[in-house]
Simulated assay, not measured.
Amino acid sequence: MKGLSRRASVAFGAVFATSLMAFSGAQAIAAPQEGGVRDVDWHAATFEVPEIGPCPQQVVEFADGEAHLPDHLYRFTPERDIVFADVTGDGTEDALMLVECGVPNSEYTRALIGMTADPEVRLLGAVESPPTWTRVPDDIGVEPHEDLGQIVTANITDFETDRTYEKRYTWSDYYNAFLSLNG
């Protein structure tokens, strides 16, 4: 890179590394945590987020609970706690969190996502990701089930119909995803 300034060389290197990661499928995510998902500072971590409304699945770097990208704003849902439970049944505690995303200065679509740290922090997937901002998951719960392991519950508010209903999900090792138990 003879003739390039140091700043241009560093920028080129960063672009090249990011392109290489994207091409190879590598992901830059939060570092493994000795204590598991409870020890991750999720509001200041870098991790893969699933597709949420108009926002694509991608690795996002959060700072103070938000991630500002050129076309999208990701944020943790204000005043909502992260729920911890072994929802996959593998003996490792997982994290369930409400994350919103949208075009800046617009309505944000909210999704309930699952993360794990076994031992690396990684995305389990979207538990509930409504197709529109008018359906909002909230009030997360986890309850044991004799046959299905842990059941994840979320109340969904539908602003178009002014109706609230409960959805229930379980983890499927076969599909490596959360499955809805009530459609």
Rank of each mutant, 00 (worst) to 15 (best):
N176H: 11
P78K: 14
L73E: 11
Y74T: 00
A117N: 14
L123Y: 11
Q150G: 03
T88Y: 10
L148H: 10
D158F: 15
V103N: 01
P78C: 07
E143F: 04
D162P: 05
F159V: 00
T134K: 04
D147A: 15
V121N: 03
C101D: 03
T132H: 12
D90H: 02
D64M: 08
K167Y: 01
G102N: 13
E160W: 02
V127Y: 01
P137R: 07
E93K: 10
Y74K: 00
F62V: 11
R168E: 01
A67N: 06
V99T: 06
T88F: 10
V103T: 06
Y169I: 11
A117K: 04
A154H: 02
L96P: 02
T109C: 03
S106K: 05
W171R: 09
L98I: 09
A95S: 12
N176R: 12
R163H: 08
A63K: 09
V83G: 02
A63H: 05
E79A: 05
M97A: 10
K167R: 12
Y108H: 04
A126E: 08
V142Y: 07
E160C: 12
D158Y: 15
T116G: 15
R110A: 07
R75C: 08
T88K: 11
F76A: 12
R168F: 04
T170W: 08
P144F: 08
V127M: 02
Y108T: 01
T132S: 09
C101L: 06
I113L: 12
W133T: 12
K167I: 05
R75W: 01
P70L: 13
K167M: 09
D118V: 03
D139W: 08
D94I: 03
V136F: 04
M115S: 06
W133V: 05
S106H: 03
R110Y: 02
W133A: 15
V83H: 09
T161E: 13
D71M: 12
E79I: 01
F159D: 02
E120L: 06
D81G: 12
E146A: 15
I113C: 03
P144Y: 10
F159Q: 10
T109F: 09
I140G: 04
E120R: 06
V127N: 00
C101R: 06
T109P: 01
A126T: 04
P119F: 14
P119Y: 15
C101K: 07
I156T: 10
F84Y: 15
E143P: 09
S129P: 11
S129A: 15
P78W: 09
F84C: 05
N155G: 09
R163I: 01
H68P: 00
G141F: 02
S172L: 13
E160H: 11
L124P: 02
E120W: 01
E61F: 13
D81P: 12
Y174A: 11
R163Q: 10
D94K: 01
L73Q: 12
E61W: 10
